[in-house]
């Protein structure tokens, strides 16, 4: 490891903003774990008994005229030309009364996807501020009288930002995924592959590193953290929200979808498409057809975006004067 990178890592470690980001990400991730803990709670015997009692009451009412009322209403509707419906669907079933018992695979894992947002935002800010703080304080000029060429200084700062971002991702995973996993394990609801959480943790670390590299690249290009956040906000509003509405096929290119795909393994999305009906010659209809962005595809898109932004930052840094 070069002396420049070591110096940047020390600077990263002693910056208060680094610790602030870590604390905020840990707090948000902890709130995810707390929510998961609540959802994984075992129903109490009293709740189960109350559920059984409610079921018995509704069952009795259903047998005592409820079904007949339903059938009568069905006949009336049929007389008016409406399609009759199946009254059995309205019959009380015990499984609809007993409190749901969540499982890790179906209910725990999806929580981990919600950790991506705090990790991305925290890592982006961390990377951007690591660079822009130097431009703001004017210390970049002094730094460059010690480190040349500029590409060397750039690489060290981006690498340090990446390390910081990875730590943000790992912390989010440790607190959020660890807490969620613990909730399901302690409350005896860990039915499924708990080791999948470690994969999510690794992907969150990579996600944090990529987001921090994007932040650092934007920091080099724009030199102000407010400008970086402005660009990020513009991107979210125009590209992530508006563009898919105007052009549905742009959806797989949105970063939000690719982040989800990377963290959760895959992310489905729908695109309205003309679907031909084989029973009608030349006929068909427009339907929402589901597609899926795979995890690796999402990771590649994110890596390409990070690389493009980093190169743009390097070009601007090499060309622009430094005060």
């Amino acid at each position: 490891m070069s002396g420049v990178l070591r110096a940047e890592l020390v600077r990263l470690r002693v910056r208060r903003f680094t610790w602030l980001v870590l604390v905020v990400v840990a707090a948000v991730s902890a709130s995810v774990a707390v929510y998961a803990w609540r959802e994984a709670r075992t129903p109490t015997p009293a709740e189960v008994a109350a559920a059984h009692e409610s079921y018995q009451q509704d069952r009795a009412a259903w047998l005592d005229g409820g079904r007949d009322d339903c059938e009568k209403r069905n006949r009336d509707m049929k007389a008016k030309g409406f399609e009759p419906f199946d009254c059995d669907l309205f019959a009380p079933e015990l499984e609809n009364y007993v409190p749901y018992e969540p499982t890790w695979d179906d209910d725990g894992m999806p929580y981990l996807g919600s950790l991506a947002s705090p990790v991305v935002i925290g890592a982006l800010l961390l990377g951007a501020s690591l660079v822009t703080a130097e431009f703001g304080a004017g210390s970049m000029g002094l730094w460059l009288t010690f480190v040349a060429p500029r590409g060397r200084a750039f690489r060290a700062k981006v690498a340090a930002a990446g390390v910081g971002g990875a730590l943000v991702g790992l912390l989010g995973a440790l607190v959020g995924a660890g807490g969620t996993l613990a909730a399901f394990a302690v409350l005896h609801r860990l039915h499924g592959n708990g080791w999948a959480a470690s994969g999510v943790a690794g992907r969150l670390a990579v996600l944090g590193a990529l987001a921090a590299v994007v932040g650092a690249g934007l920091g080099f290009a724009l030199r102000h953290v407010a400008a970086v956040m402005g660009i990020a906000l513009w991107w979210v509003l125009s590209v992530e929200v508006v563009a898919p509405l105007a052009w549905a096929r742009a959806r797989p290119l949105t970063l939000g979808l690719n982040v989800r795909a990377w963290v959760e393994g895959s992310a489905p999305y729908t695109v309205p498409q003309w679907v031909a009906d084989p029973q009608l010659t030349g006929g068909g209809s427009v339907q929402d057809v589901e597609h899926v962005v795979r995890g690796l595809q999402g990771g590649l898109v994110l890596a390409v975006v990070a690389a493009v932004v980093a190169v743009a930052g390097l070009v601007v840094f090499r060309v622009r004067d430094v005060s």
């Binding site: 600077r11 002693v14 703080a133 304080a137 004017g138 970049m140 002094l142 009288t145």
Partner: peptide, 12 residues
């Protein structure tokens, strides 16, 4: 070199 004003990291 020290150019213009001394520009060290103020928080350190």
């Amino acid at each position: 070199a020290v150019v213009e004003q001394p520009r060290l990291f103020p928080a350190f």
